[in-house]
Design a protein around this nucleic acid. Sequence first.
DNA 1: CGTTCTTTTGATGATGCTCAACTGGGGTGG
DNA 2: CCACCCCAGTTGAGCATCATCAAAAGAACG
Lengths: 252, 252
Amino acid sequence: MSTIQPLTANKAFNVNALRASCSACSMHQLCLPMGLGESEINRLDEIIGRRRKIPKDGLLYRIDDTFTNLYAIRLGHFKTFQLTPNGEQQITGFQMAGELLGMDAISTDRHHCDAVALEDSEVCEIPFARLEELFGSIPTLLHHFHRMMSQEITREQNVMLLLGNMRAEQRFAAFLVNLSARYAARGYSSTNFQLRMSREEIGNYLGLTIESISRLLSRFKKQSLLRVSNREIEILEPAHLKAIAAGTESCD
Amino acid sequence: MSTIQPLTANKAFNVNALRASCSACSMHQLCLPMGLGESEINRLDEIIGRRRKIPKDGLLYRIDDTFTNLYAIRLGHFKTFQLTPNGEQQITGFQMAGELLGMDAISTDRHHCDAVALEDSEVCEIPFARLEELFGSIPTLLHHFHRMMSQEITREQNVMLLLGNMRAEQRFAAFLVNLSARYAARGYSSTNFQLRMSREEIGNYLGLTIESISRLLSRFKKQSLLRVSNREIEILEPAHLKAIAAGTESCD
DNA sequence: CGTTCTTTTGATGATGCTCAACTGGGGTGG
DNA sequence: CCACCCCAGTTGAGCATCATCAAAAGAACG
């Protein structure tokens, strides 16, 4: 059998597969459909456009693109970044499956950052105008959407705290603890995971240089807090790492 | 006539005055009612609880208070701050008339920061549950609310950029430029205004120490960018200040 | 297997913090 | 009214943290 044959035979099926189905999505407990009944989920499904694949390093949207869709990450990881007035990038967040992209664009109908896939990824396109129409008849959905926006505000406040108040070691520990918690919430190991972003991207996000990140990794490794191999992380002492993140303890 | 007499005579009027009236509020073009028709504004007015006065240094809400109301600032200035894990405060924002407080609390039904008045201030209490009910029948209101939340996300991203990427001088210039623009949007002078917050609070917000702020003020003063007297600021060279904020130019 | 990009490690230096002393404005009480 | 105090802010000196620069080592890719 050639490889073409099955593709053709299953065309109808594949077109179907391109439509997102929230109920079948493993992320629906974290994402917009959370708390909805079956019929409500179906109504949400109806407005969700297509599922879109974004290859590694692919651009989901770009600063100043007109805003029409929110994007729910189905699979993969993204980074969002702004450009500073003088042209360098500042990463404002790393997003993973179940999280929503594009909420910062609502205010001006233009995107305020670029969103780039850190690995091959998939998103669901959610036409925002139609979503707002749905809100009128599904209060639960509206309320949960507000929670998600509010959560984004909270997340950013935590980053402000991190950037404004913490020393390098504490920032990086907090970063790892945060990743760990988010993977745990998704049913993955909280101690073993792969960094999807480069050292440089981590440094950029944390307001540090790539060299500082590298040195911190070496230090944590030497203290047997972590085992590190390239982008593979194993947290050996979660409690101690949390203590460093909290500023209770330091790693000298 | 005694001073008591009119107060008693006007009791009904005064009770009325305690109810907020959006249409009569000078901030309604910046605040929630933006873009609403008259009858819609009236419906919004109906759900808005009372107008509340908060004296200087008074607490509007505190971390972990249960969330029931958003607050629209009618008059005055506030700061919001979180506590770092080890107990010191990090200011996450300075808010002025027309801005909305409390949106970060929606996600968990508890406030994530303290809000304290920087001077004698007045807020309108907006019961969030009732506001969400209104959204069902006033799509314009809903959409504008989303814009306001989105704007808050954008604002915080700008702070992240500031804290993650900028040197001290640039941060402080950006801070002043930002205040200047916000006063201008409210019809006040963009070049002459009073800082409502202490040097220490500015430093805390910008991730710098009070000494650094003081030195920067002196430097800007010496370069005739500013005239400064205590908390009174006069921006003498707005363009140059913006250039410094943008990182285009420095003030050596 | 060489080329290229990412990461690590080392040496040096600047930015902004810490500590300390001093100034000045505003309020209080003698 | 003046002396005093207290707090916020200013200024200076030394130092720590982290950035910068440089070079080498290690992964990834064709």
